[in-house]
Simulated assay, not measured.
Amino acid sequence: MSGTLTFFYSENNDLRLARSIENRLRQGIGLKSNGLSFGDYHILRENSLPATLVELGFLSNRSDESIVRTASYQKKAAKAIADGLADYFD
């Protein structure tokens, strides 16, 4: 597996937030976007507020690991998430 992946649990509560963040990640931060995926994870399922889980790369993939360890990638990823949050709350 390689790239980013954005998880949501509830289509009613979480999907819009996940989509806002994913749209920004998809614009290009250094790894390809694998889109949105349903995630039946405790941290999402048991959260009463809108929530998403963002996989910003796979450390099991050597290429991803070398990219995600760079400061420039981390800054781009953080900005994409912040911009996605701003879009969501706008």
Rank of each mutant, 00 (worst) to 15 (best):
R26L: 14
F58T: 09
L31H: 08
L31R: 07
L36V: 15
D90H: 11
S48N: 08
N34M: 02
D40C: 01
Q74K: 08
E46C: 10
D87T: 12
D90T: 12
E65Q: 10
N13Q: 12
R26W: 06
G57E: 04
A18Y: 00
R16D: 15
S48P: 14
Y88W: 00
Y41K: 01
L85W: 14
Y9V: 09
N12W: 09
G57F: 03
L17G: 10
S60V: 05
Y41M: 11
Y41F: 15
D14H: 13
F8L: 06
L85E: 10
G39Q: 14
V68P: 01
F8G: 10
F38Y: 14
S60W: 03
P50I: 09
E65L: 11
A80L: 03
R45G: 00
N34Q: 10
A18F: 03
G84Y: 00
F8V: 07
L53T: 11
L85D: 11
N47Q: 08
S37I: 08
S72L: 07
A77L: 04
I29T: 03
Y88Q: 01
K79W: 09
G35C: 14
T70Q: 09
L53A: 08
K32H: 04
I43W: 05
P50Y: 00
F7I: 05
E46P: 02
L5N: 09
S37V: 12
G35K: 13
R69E: 07
S20Q: 00
N47A: 01
I67Q: 04
L31I: 12
S10R: 12
Y88T: 02
A77R: 03
A86V: 08
A82D: 13
S63A: 10
L85Q: 12
S66A: 09
V68K: 03
